[in-house]
Design a protein around this nucleic acid. Sequence first.
DNA 1: ACAAAAGTGTTCTTTGTACACCCATGA
DNA 2: TCATGGGTGTACAAAGAACACTTTTGT
Lengths: 230, 230
Amino acid sequence: MEEKLPVFESIFSIDCLIFGFEAGVLKILLIERGDEPFKDWFALPGYIVKQDESLDDAADRILYELTGLRDLPMKQFHTFGEVNRHPQGRVITVGYYALIRVNSQKELRPTAHLARKAIWHPVSDLPKLAFDHTDIFNKGFAKIRRRLNHQPIAFDLLPEKFTLTQLQGLYEAILDKKLDKRNFRKKMLSYGFLKELVEKQKGVSYRAAKLYKFDKRKYAKIFQNELTAE
Amino acid sequence: MEEKLPVFESIFSIDCLIFGFEAGVLKILLIERGDEPFKDWFALPGYIVKQDESLDDAADRILYELTGLRDLPMKQFHTFGEVNRHPQGRVITVGYYALIRVNSQKELRPTAHLARKAIWHPVSDLPKLAFDHTDIFNKGFAKIRRRLNHQPIAFDLLPEKFTLTQLQGLYEAILDKKLDKRNFRKKMLSYGFLKELVEKQKGVSYRAAKLYKFDKRKYAKIFQNELTAE
DNA sequence: ACAAAAGTGTTCTTTGTACACCCATGA
DNA sequence: TCATGGGTGTACAAAGAACACTTTTGT
């Protein structure tokens, strides 16, 4: 602490890209802003990092304040630092993402005034977003699409028990293309980390499908070498 | 500009991970610090972002001031925001990396006082670095290792004309494992983006190897679909 | 009985991997 | 002539891609 650092009036913030999968549609969480700038616009949940909290902690806190969601496994994906990205001053923002089960979450309840409300919105039809949030979305979504091929991130979006058809539908929603049913199932099952349950799907007016679980322990065993990758 | 943003005394900085390949050894660029804190320590070239420059611009400027190198194709890889990572206050830093040709560069000539000198240091034997720079190095190096399998980043480290053995040596240095000569060559040539030159290696006391060039145009044509990936 | 989705194999192509010897050159 | 790295091919295994019909169930 011997010498002083030069101080600039600059701020950093967090913006969160929270994906969910509901009724076969891929969605993200948006807030409707109740304050200027961009009052009444839709935006990614995001706000300013405090001086005494790490980025990861800030991401948790901010998401909670703006949406009511808590303790999601968020990961950083990119930092956006264009000089004029915020109309009120220099704000550098760190983008975080998470993939979650929509229905496992309580109702969306922002506590901060900035968020008038929080909603799930289909990614295929996003409105114009505040600030450079559309860029942030695009960058983050591209990253997730790439990661889908290497990491078991899809299971975070599904209920604990799911059918292979649901899983395939999710892959198709994220990758935005049709996949071959037989090849998809063969490949998924060949990994060995899906656990077949005795229980079957209920309440459908056609042949009930088998339910599966994602088995984290098996996954960790099988891919312990590759876990170095993130 | 209607309302004021809350202002915290926080700072962001850039740290650069510059890789080079010299005499068959993978190296990174370090500075020896001439100022507190961590005076006399080795560190990654890094300093504070000004208020009126983007992160990318700041990375270029800072690297130039601390090492004399200019206009490298640097890319952001991660942002480090632990509260106590800097002993003098809250400093969030954005990590950038680049891979370059060591010999294509002029002498290393820092202009900023902070860098007493800049040197190339083998990655296999790094000293303790200032701040959390060892963590930053590990994270960045891991990223590059992964990227090596998907992107033609190795060619940035080699002279314009190179032999297949040199290329293989570089892959082996980055991945830290031996590769099979025949399989390596077959695979590289099968991509179709290496251009065989008529010119051959000179000045060696054994059979002269063919020289190759990396053909960016062909690469772009072949992989235009996958270029969405970064 | 019919509508709707579940479930299932084979063939071919591509990619990866293991492995060892002769060749050309300069000293 | 010898030491040094340059250069080459084959066989097998694994993974990916194309492709269509029968089965189960609820209504």
